[in-house]
């Protein structure tokens, strides 16, 4: 088997985003009170795409924000890195239904950090989680409400998500580290 295997191409990703957009509207009975927050870096374009879909379907403006969680990681001290991503949540999240978006769900630690960070911004009415890929191996009790694709993986495999906005093309591959 090749070292790199394409899991999703651009068409697949487009269909997934459409499907998830519909699921979100279905579950929330419309888009009332919904705000979208993407986790840096690839959660941000995903959140924007879903929000744009929903804005079109519902014919109204949907708020989106960006969240950088580097200061909230439980391993910050071990993995301090210069922060350059800027958090930008230009609205009050109190009592809103936040749709939190990330590309890959793995150990659950990123989501834990993101939840803590969000709580510092206010008190949302609810938080729902969207991920493009769920690769398993959870270390914390976290689950996603909307999943693009479940991919059972081994620990020596890595999932690489590329999106047009950040990487000039839409593609998800699974890579084996030798």
């Amino acid at each position: 088997m090749a070292d790199n295997f394409v899991l999703l191409n651009d068409k697949d990703i487009e269909r997934i985003i459409k499907r998830i957009s519909h699921e979100i509207i279905e579950r929330n009975r419309g888009s009332e009170n919904l705000v979208f927050i993407g986790i840096h870096k690839r959660g941000v374009p995903l959140a924007e795409r879903i929000a744009a879909n929903i804005a079109e379907m519902e014919n109204k403006v949907i708020k989106t924000g960006k969240l950088d969680i580097s200061f909230y990681r439980d391993d910050t001290i071990k993995r301090l890195k210069p922060a350059v991503a800027i958090t930008d949540i230009p609205f009050n999240i109190d009592n809103t239904n936040v749709i939190l978006v990330d590309d890959v769900l793995f150990t659950g630690r990123t989501i834990r950090s993101a939840l803590n960070a969000l709580m510092d911004f206010g008190r949302p009415g609810s938080i729902q989680l969207v991920v493009l890929i769920d690769r398993g191996h959870r270390e914390l009790p976290v689950r996603a409400d909307y999943v693009g694709k479940n991919i059972p993986t081994a620990l020596n495999e890595s999932i690489e998500v590329r999106l047009y906005e950040t990487d000039k093309k839409d593609m998800v591959t699974i890579n084996v580290k030798r």
Binding site: D68, F71, Y72, T76, I77, A83, V84, A85, D120, G122
Partner: peptide
């Protein structure tokens, strides 16, 4: 980045706990 943190309502991050 930190200038943005200072503009939040809650102005503290736990990076150097």
């Amino acid at each position: 980045t930190f200038s943005e943190v200072l503009s939040r309502d809650f102005k503290k991050v736990p990076a150097l706990r």
